[in-house]
Design a protein around this nucleic acid. Structure first.
Lengths: 190, 190
DNA sequence: ACGTCTTGGTTCATTCACCGAACCTTGGGT
DNA sequence: ACCCAAGGTTCGGTGAATGAACCAAGACGT
């Protein structure tokens, strides 16, 4: 946490956990990592987070072993951040928190998650009621709900509009792929 | 969150949830509420949180419907803060976060939780493997582990040393109940 | 060879939440 | 009349978050 004084006095594993993922923005970065976001710029535009804060969070999460910085191309050297095994262990937390938010503070369904193999929606902890098992992350499919903005600004949100597996890297459209017909309008919204 | 700008751009129930419980200290207050802490002063001494921050958090959580402020005595009017149904819905989140912290950042076992009826330790999501059910909060018994400080300073931590049910109000010793034999020593630790 | 673009940052001034100590208020108790 | 306990509020100082500007390495067109 590194905010003045940590939760240092707390003899509690929850406090330990919050020292790692309890800062502002951190859990949203982790959520995006589950959604398949991996690159600095994608986190940036999707979260709308200040650059300095994002750099600090990625640094902290990497140091804590939640994310791993990994070279994905050499020619211009570029790194991506992917969840480690430890990071993937946060799925039940992220899942249950999201479900709680959806149940109590959301009007329309934004996203839901289902077991790819059988199609049933996940339970509160990421388990499949039909199969009776905790679904491995690779078999979780994220589905868009009716509450999502159908034409969001940033390319990452657009990439997240279609169903996709968790952890599977997002595919942002190569630039210039504006949704046809929207660009040339320049309609004056008065 | 009310920090500059909320997570307002986020179309996400996780972001919604974090606006309520994502601030510093908030989830620890909720944890304490699960542990049976109910009164301002008990939160204060157990968390070591600044008074103003605690007041703000209790206010926010009450406004969000996570806690309920309830009069527990009239003569000097006193209120306590107890978890609502909505607040109790955070148990999976708190449980999974604590388990994650314990698995990755704790050396010795601090606390564990078991099903009162059959005695088995809870699974990752608060379920009982033996009974095959999710254990209702009232049937969860919090047990001290070997990693806990056996003689903590504050009375709340002392009250949490003995096994107790979740949500069951803590019993702080009436003052003057110093652990016999420790007080008069005044051993100089040099 | 030159300017430009993309990616992934760092720097910096300003704002705002956190901190901790002191103070306040209500209602006993003695 | 005085003191105490519970539950706060006030206030000056500190440090993190914010957002805009700047920086740098490497590709790429011309």
């Amino acid at each position: 946490m590194a905010l003045g004084k940590d939760y240092v006095a707390q003899e509690c594993s929850i406090a330990r956990a919050l020292e790692v993922v309890g800062e502002r923005w951190t859990l949203l970065v982790v959520r995006d990592a589950f959604y398949g976001v991996r690159r600095y710029n994608d986190f940036l535009v999707h979260l709308g987070i200040p650059r300095a804060v994002l750099a600090a969070r990625l640094q902290t999460l990497t140091a804590a072993g939640v994310l791993e910085k990994r070279r994905y191309q050499e020619s211009p050297p570029r790194d991506e951040y992917v969840l480690t095994e430890r990071g993937r262990g946060l799925w039940p937390t992220v899942r249950s928190l999201g479900l709680w938010g959806r149940l109590h503070f959301t009007e329309t369904l934004l996203r839901y998650f289902r077991h790819t193999i059988c199609g049933t929606e996940l339970g509160p902890y990421g388990e499949c009621a039909a199969c009776g098992t905790v679904v491995p992350l690779e078999d979780v499919e994220m589905m868009p709900g009716p509450g999502l903005d159908p034409a969001p600004e940033d390319p990452v949100s657009r990439a997240l509009l279609k169903p996709k597996r968790l952890l599977q890297p997002i595919e942002t459209e190569p630039l210039g792929t504006e949704p046809l017909g929207t660009e040339p309008l320049k309609a004056d919204p008065v």
